[in-house]
């Protein structure tokens, strides 16, 4: 019986201490790591339509249509099937597509999660964030120091023709 009593002691100790680890979301924001992979941010002005992101995406979330001069016409992102693997960001040579820390996403139907180029201009998680800022994306924030070159190189050497 001593063991049972000791067990009761352990739980009583917890009850007396009263520590909690609940995060009172949404009043309190859950701790999101700087590297967190949330919904995408796409910059039309940066994209060079190389289609590397489309090729690497494992499940066809990204759908790009170009004209015969290989100029971009459509950039569709079906977020409903994205697995947030960040491979598109990893291979994009110009950081035109970036995964943000935004994670609150909902929709009534699957179709609402299909974004085209125009939709991507004003999706809610862009608010207060200038897509053009992607020109100087703060990569150091999530990649760490001086790895920048390495990632760029890996990306370029992988899918460049």
């Amino acid at each position: 019986m001593m063991g049972v009593l000791r067990s009761l002691g352990v739980t009583a100790k917890h009850a007396l201490k009263g520590d909690t680890f609940t995060v009172e979301y949404p009043d309190e924001s859950p701790g999101i790591s700087p590297r967190f992979r949330g919904t995408h941010k796409f910059s039309l002005s940066r994209c060079i339509w190389c289609r590397m992101c489309e090729e690497v995406c494992p499940n066809g979330t990204i759908d790009i249509k170009t004209n015969e001069k290989r100029e971009g016409e459509e950039y569709n992102l079906n977020l409903g099937q994205c697995i947030y693997c960040r491979l598109c960001e990893e291979v994009c040579p110009v950081d035109a597509i970036i995964l943000t820390q935004h994670f609150e996403l909902n929709a009534g139907t699957k179709a609402e999660l299909e974004y085209n180029m125009d939709d991507l201009m004003d999706v809610p998680w862009y608010k207060g964030m200038d897509p053009l800022e992607a020109r100087e994306p703060d990569r150091g924030a999530w990649i760490g120091t001086d790895e920048e070159d390495d990632v760029w190189e890996t990306a370029e050497s992988t899918y460049a023709d």
Binding site: T11, H14, A15, G18, D19, T20, F21, T22, E24
Partner: peptide, 13 residues
């Protein structure tokens, strides 16, 4: 409330 307290949680609030 009491179970939450034993289990380090907050419960209904």
């Amino acid at each position: 409330k009491w179970n939450a307290r034993l289990g380090d949680r907050i419960a209904v609030n």
